[in-house]
Amino acid sequence: MKKYEAVIIGGGQAGLAMGYFLKKEKLSFVIIEKNGHVGDSWRQRYNSLVLFTTRQYSSLPGLQMRGPSEGFPAKDDMADYLNDYVKHFDLPVMLNTNVIQLNKLPDGPFIIETNSGIVKAQQVIIAAGAFQKPYIPPLIKDGTDAFQLHSSEYRSPEEVPGGEVLIVGGGNSGAQLAVELAKDRKVTIAARHRMKFLPLTILGKSIFYWLEKLGLLFAGTDTIKGSWFQKQKDPIFGKELKTLIQNKKVDVKPKVLQVSGTEVLFGDGIQRNFESIIWSTGFVPSYEWIHIEGVVSAEGKPIHKRGITEIKGLYFIGLPWQYQRGSALICGVGRDAEYLASIVLSGKFQQLRK
């Protein structure tokens, strides 16, 4: 049985940022990662994926990503960078390790059951990421004959059968897939809300540079700017899809109400047939492995304030809007990690004084 002062569950960007600050404070800790290599979650995403944040805004604390700061990294660049980050700071990572259960002894340590054995920790930081269980809404009636997959399973256009494709979901992933697939076939995208487009750059600078200058990117939810920003619908970064829609290369429909066979019923009452459907409908939390009361709500969402739970020594990091717009983004997670590290460190000192 291995024992640590702190255990970080998840070796993605949030977990590594947390590890960076704990390493600076010389805490005894380990990062538990389910994949065989750090960065594998990025490598497993669709082949053409390019981040909408420039390298300047795609780096973690202490180490700038190699390459032009105003350039946009691809998914494999991100995976390589995370690997480099671990090596550069010599962060302790347990690879190929799945967490089966998380428990806590009364007035005692946390017990983490993994496929590699039991791990004990005085404090635990859950950095499992915002994208956990793919979500497909219950809209299919009496089955479907259409080829379908969730956007998280999509890799390239070659695996999607020919003919018209329906993409359900008007977020950034759905927009990027629509642009790629529209190169050689008819694409329809169904969105619940009117899509708002923002340019990737303005005057040669990343849109995130300007959001930061306006005091919006890192504004906390307890501020006027942060509260206002949180209420806004997420925009689509880049205007390629907007151009395709204007040129009638991509059709836009309202939300999908029902799918039956190959027939799809939309919110405007129109019915159309599609050979293929890609569900770009996001993810839902998956915390069934946490066996501690008061950590997760009835809706399955973490109960926390700035990542701090009501359970002493248990924290979350990397959640959307955990405290600011950048909380689930590479550019902003380090700020939350630095804040939580100070809380974790104070917990260590409290234990030493006992």
Rank of each mutant, 00 (worst) to 15 (best):
S297P: 07
S297L: 07
S297T: 10
S297R: 03
S297M: 06
S297Y: 01
E299M: 10
E299V: 07
E299L: 12
E299S: 13
E299T: 13
G300V: 02
G300N: 09
K301N: 12
P302T: 04
P302M: 07
I303W: 00
I303M: 14
I303A: 01
H304N: 11
H304W: 07
H304G: 04
H304D: 09
K305M: 09
K305D: 13
K305Q: 14
K305F: 10
K305L: 12
R306K: 14
R306L: 04
R306H: 12
G307L: 06
G307S: 07
G307M: 09
I308H: 00
I308M: 09
T309N: 11
T309F: 03
T309C: 10
E310Y: 05
E310T: 14
E310W: 00
I311L: 07
I311V: 15
I311Q: 15
K312I: 07
K312M: 07
G313D: 00
L314S: 05
L314C: 02
L314M: 12
Y315M: 03
Y315T: 01
Y315S: 03
Y315N: 01
Y315G: 02
F316G: 00
F316C: 06
F316A: 05
F316P: 02
F316D: 02
F316Q: 00
I317Q: 02
I317Y: 01
I317M: 02
I317S: 01
I317N: 06
G318D: 05
G318I: 05
G318P: 06
L319C: 06
P320V: 02
P320R: 01
P320M: 00
P320Y: 01
W321D: 05
W321K: 04
W321F: 03
Q322T: 01
Q322A: 05
Q322E: 12
Q322P: 05
Q322L: 03
Q322C: 01
Q322D: 05
Y323A: 14
Y323L: 03
Y323F: 09
Q324P: 00
Q324S: 13
Q324E: 13
R325F: 11
G326E: 08
S327E: 11
S327L: 12
S327F: 03
A328F: 10
A328Y: 09
A328E: 11
L329Q: 15
L329W: 09
L329R: 12
L329C: 08
I330M: 13
I330P: 14
I330N: 11
I330H: 07
I330G: 03
C331L: 15
C331N: 15
G332S: 12
G332P: 13
G332K: 14
V333D: 11
V333H: 09
G334M: 14
D336F: 04
D336G: 12
D336C: 10
A337L: 08
A337H: 07
E338L: 13
E338H: 12
Y339A: 08
Y339C: 05
L340E: 03
L340K: 06
L340H: 02
